[in-house]
Design a protein around this nucleic acid. Structure first.
Length: 584
RNA sequence: GCCAAAAUAGCUCAGCGGUAGAGCAACGCACUCGUAAUGCGUAGGUCGUGGGUUCAAUUCCCACUUUUGGCUCCA
């Protein structure tokens, strides 16, 4: 389930949800006495239970399961906890292979507890509500049937998972279902279609994005800002090819470690060319093109580099998971003693960028050395330490992901929370101890000796496609004026004022505003409705009064309206909203 | 890739063994209008693709493609 939490998961609610999953398991066992049961925990907003069933479940089955659950709840069966010997538990679940596996996995020093309600006993740590009567038969809903591998491993059998949501009161359930609807309304795929921003075409290839003119305008606004800020922050832009011969990918190690993520090779002149899944080897080619003195470092090279990666068919999702995307990539190549400052600067820059787009709630995730990895231990330690220091200096909240780094280096990921409280990973700052060595990168140090530089990969927005999708949902399509594909729609109240409308359009365009006049033969009301549905921030409505006074009447996207604003005042107001990047 | 559901006009959806229907959008005509839909009319679909069953398939069955919700993975 992708869904935001409405309330913090207090223990009572957790017990309700967990108990609900047991009730569901009882109901399912009533229907399928031969079913194998796996696990059934409480999760955010609800619960699930995994089953191995004799036949496939249909959506209609959920109705019957629901009815049976309601009956069980009404029976007021107590949840009885008992602690049993391992042997006893194994006898109890003699014909439940998944449960037997779970029992074996319980550490020796831990007690084995069972929970029983009515005719159903489950291996379970608890806790549960005291009796099914404490569950509200009107405060839960079974949401979906999904497949899930036993213990999440692809090689294990696929079980049938039933998801449900459960609350203490029906009112909370209704609230939650309402919120699911809100999330659906904000879905970037829906908004992208409604606002005509982008499309995907099954017949032309899954996971490949087509940017329509309106979407492209917004993307341009993002990219223009991005370039300007990168130059300001000491970056240079580079452009690199989209394909490279196998030598490049052998050297980088991608063909060893990342082959399953790459598009298959193209053959030409007896050589294999691969479409790039990453930009780094190309940036390194530029670096290795000549000698570098320590005086030249750091180099910071950025590129909006479009890469292609094979994603499993089932993983594709709108703009959020695609097969071709543009990273706002950059590589920082520096001496070891520049590293700490560079990291701090990247982190600051990243936070500045994210905040500029309206994301205020930002959290860091620091990932450290995994078991299988390259590089010296002291390198890992100092790199990790400088990442941690930078996070501290910026006063960011962070979580440690021990062993979660890439094999080639530690990293910081930044996640933002959107308007609905959902978390999205955007920025990533990663050390790389692998490629500098593989490509034999060097710089000449003060002592005249050739040494190996440090390299950091970083993407601030992540991928433009993904970032755009997140932004679209965050604003529910109502982009702030600096990003809006059309900032001003001029609407004459009637045909005689079309000339004034055209004049305004010209004037606004000279101010670099994205503006258009609606000269269609719709009535004014219809034009307003249209502009409103397109979520255009400013509607400028003009008739006789405005033309006479060289003024405008403004209807804001919010519905608020102001009449008779002098033209210059309006221009100035919009200009300042745009430059300050504020809403409306 | 795996499990489940789905694919009908540009969009949202109805229909379901006898080769299709609505609303919006588009187009045409009339209306000339002050803050979320003026009226009337016209046109638009080999019902995702390929097989099969049948006298007959958009409808039933199979495969494929894609989408959706999960599992897994991740920018």
């Amino acid at each position: 389930m992708r869904g935001a939490k409405i309330m913090s998961q207090d223990d009572a609610l957790h017990a309700v949800r967990h108990s609900m999953s047991h009730v569901m398991a009882e109901a399912v066992l009533e229907m399928f006495p031969d079913a194998q049961i796996a696990i059934g925990p409480a999760i955010d907003n609800g619960f699930y239970y995994d089953f191995d069933l004799p036949r496939q479940l249909k959506t209609e089955d959920l109705e019957e399961i629901t009815r049976r659950m309601q009956d069980i709840i009404k029976d007021d069966k107590p949840f009885e906890r008992s602690v049993v010997a391992r042997k006893e538990a194994e006898e109890q679940f003699a014909d439940q292979k998944y449960k037997l596996e779970l029992i074996k996995a319980i550490p020796e020093d831990q007690e084995v507890s069972l929970y029983k309600q009515g005719g159903f006993t489950d291996l379970c740590k608890g806790p549960h509500v005291a009796s099914t009567k404490q569950l509200n038969p009107q405060a839960f809903k079974l949401l979906s049937i999904a497949g899930a591998y036993w213990r999440g491993k692809e090689t294990n059998p696929m079980l049938t998972r039933i998801y449900g949501t459960a609350w203490e009161h029906p009112k909370q359930l209704r609230q939650y279902l309402k919120q699911l609807e809100d999330i659906e309304k904000r879905d970037h795929r829906k908004l992208g279609k409604e606002l005509d921003l982008f499309s995907l075409h099954e017949e032309a290839g899954a996971g490949l994005v087509y940017w329509h003119p309106k979407g492209a305008r917004i993307r341009q606004a993002i990219e223009d800002f991005w370039r300007k800020e990168h130059y300001r922050n000491g970056y240079e832009m580079v452009y690199t090819p989209h394909v490279g011969k196998s030598w490049l990918w052998e050297t980088s190690g991608h063909l060893d470690f990342y082959k399953e993520g790459m598009y298959p090779p193209m053959e030409m002149d007896k050589a294999h060319y691969f479409v790039k899944p990453m930009n780094c080897p190309f940036h390194i080619m530029i670096y290795n093109n000549g000698m570098h003195s320590y005086r030249d470092l750091p180099v910071r090279w950025a590129e909006l580099g479009t890469v292609y990666r094979y994603e499993k068919a089932g993983a594709l999702h709108g703009l959020l998971r695609v097969r071709g995307f543009t990273q706002d990539d950059a590589h920082i190549i520096c001496t070891p003693d520049q590293m700490e400052d560079e990291i701090l600067e990247v982190l600051r820059f990243s936070l500045y960028m994210l905040r500029s787009f309206g994301f205020q709630d930002i959290k860091a995730y620091l990932s450290t050395r995994p078991e299988d990895s390259v590089g010296e231990q002291h390198q890992w330690e100092s790199a990790t330490e400088s990442l941690r220091k930078a996070i501290d200096r910026e006063g960011l909240a962070y979580e440690l992901d021990e062993g979660g780094g890439a094999f080639y280096g530690p990293k910081i990921d930044l996640k933002i929370k959107d308007a609905l409280g959902r978390e999205w990973q955007l920025s990533t700052i990663q050390f790389d101890f692998n490629e500098p060595q593989r490509f034999n990168m060097e710089f000449v140090d003060k002592d005249g000796k050739e040494k190996r530089p440090f390299m950091v990969h970083r993407a601030l927005l992540g991928s433009i496609e993904r970032f755009f999708g997140v932004l679209l949902e965050h604003y529910a399509g109502a982009f702030p004026p600096w990003l809006a594909y059309e900032q001003i729609r001029i609407i004459p109240v009637a045909a005689p004022f079309e000339d004034y409308a055209k004049k305004l359009q010209q004037l606004f365009r000279e101010q670099d505003f994205r503006a258009s006049a609606d000269l269609s033969d719709d009535r004014m009301n219809a034009k307003i409705r249209k502009a409103q549905k397109e979520k255009i921030p400013y509607m400028v409505i003009v008739g006789e009064r405005e033309e006479q006074d060289q003024a405008v009447s403004v209807r804001y996207r919010s519905g608020k309206q102001e009449n008779g604003i002098p033209l210059e005042d309006f221009v100035q107001m919009v200009a300042s909203r745009v430059s300050e990047k504020t809403q409306l």
